[in-house]
Simulated scan of single mutants.
Amino acid sequence: MIDSHSMRKKIGVSAALTTPFDDIGAIDWPRFAAHAKHLLGQGMQVVTAFGTTGEGISISASARAPLYERMAAAGIGAGNLVECVYGPSSQDAGDHARRSLEAGCGGILLTPPFYFKQPTEEGVYRWFAEVLERTGAAGRDVILYNIPDLTGVRVGPKLVARLRVAFPHAIAGVKDSSGDWHQTTALLAEHADLAILVGHEGHLAKAVRQGASGAISGVANFAPALVAKLVGGEDDPLIDALLGRLLKLPVVPAVKAILAAQTGDAVWARVRAPLQAVEEASALKACKEISAMISAGATDRAATGT
């Protein structure tokens, strides 16, 4: 086992980048790069492309392929990017992961298979093993993605332990987006030397105090300073008030609507099918109120020097 993986220092806060789309539904690369550059300028070492908040599952591999070239043209190195990789085919996931790792990415966020429901742990282990075997010598800095509400697959401590034994140089961490505090603490109890990254921002500060290294966070798209405070292990009641509103909305469209309200750029509100943009008046009002809450919180922090 690795005593303390370098990914723990690399990812304190990483924004799960939301993806802007142009008027024909293609990735708006200039906006995407500008947003990534802005967030990296807020103190992040890496940002994460095409995760859940980035609607990566709705974007083809060919459309995503120019990621590193486009970011390099904007002055963003491959090492500043974690890329989320999906299956459900282990061959496709392995080939994608290998290409990204060979391009020099900072890491891979690897989603488990998600079509066949209630697979056995042995079956899930074999799927991950096939992906990692396919990456070959390039295999490194892999963050396992535990998001069972969407994939139907739980990535628990036992599975992580088996993969660490089989692929000790590849497994770097786990992103736990289960929202289940017991799952988070179980991962921390057995694998705190890895980068344990918490997806539920409401659990983040207490998880860091128990050994988590940080977060890949959708909220960090529009509130990076708040998420950084939580990753510092410091509680802030603003996150509970914010999540109390956000989690009543369709989260990914709402994050984009909040960013549109914050920036004054309506392009950010566009989503890919099957998601639908926030349009209902009460939901739009809630998104604008969240944006205002973040602005007020930033003003308060500036006034108090915190």
Rank of each mutant, 00 (worst) to 15 (best):
V251W: 02
T185W: 01
P274V: 03
L238S: 11
H203M: 15
A172L: 06
G232D: 12
A254P: 13
T135S: 05
L259I: 12
D265V: 11
F222G: 03
M7K: 06
S62G: 09
E234N: 06
T120D: 09
G104T: 09
M71S: 04
A63C: 08
G54R: 02
A223Q: 05
A63D: 15
L101M: 07
S178P: 05
V208W: 07
A195N: 01
I290H: 06
A189N: 14
D236Q: 11
D265A: 11
T306Y: 01
T48M: 12
V46I: 09
K229E: 14
S178G: 15
D3P: 07
T53G: 06
D236V: 07
G244F: 12
A298G: 08
W268H: 12
A74K: 06
Q42P: 00
A93F: 14
T299S: 09
N146S: 11
P250W: 09
D3Q: 13
V82R: 00
P20C: 06
A161V: 03
V198S: 04
H191V: 11
E55P: 07
A74E: 15
R31W: 01
K285A: 13
H182Y: 05
A63P: 10
L159H: 09
H5A: 13
Q262T: 12
F32N: 03
I258N: 08
Q42L: 00
G202Y: 10
G106H: 07
D28I: 03
W29L: 08
S295H: 01
E201H: 06
D300S: 13
G173V: 10
G123A: 15
T299K: 13
M44Y: 06
E122Y: 01
L40T: 07
H96K: 00
S295Y: 00
A254I: 09
W127D: 08
G51F: 04
V155I: 15
A192F: 08
A172E: 03
P224G: 02
A138T: 02
G104L: 08
A260R: 04
D235H: 12
L188D: 03
D149E: 06
L249Y: 13
A223L: 04
F128M: 01
T18Q: 05
L230T: 07
I258A: 09
H38F: 14
L187C: 01
S89D: 12
T18K: 00
A241I: 02
L39H: 02
V165K: 15
H38L: 10
V227D: 03
S213A: 11
E280W: 01
T263R: 08
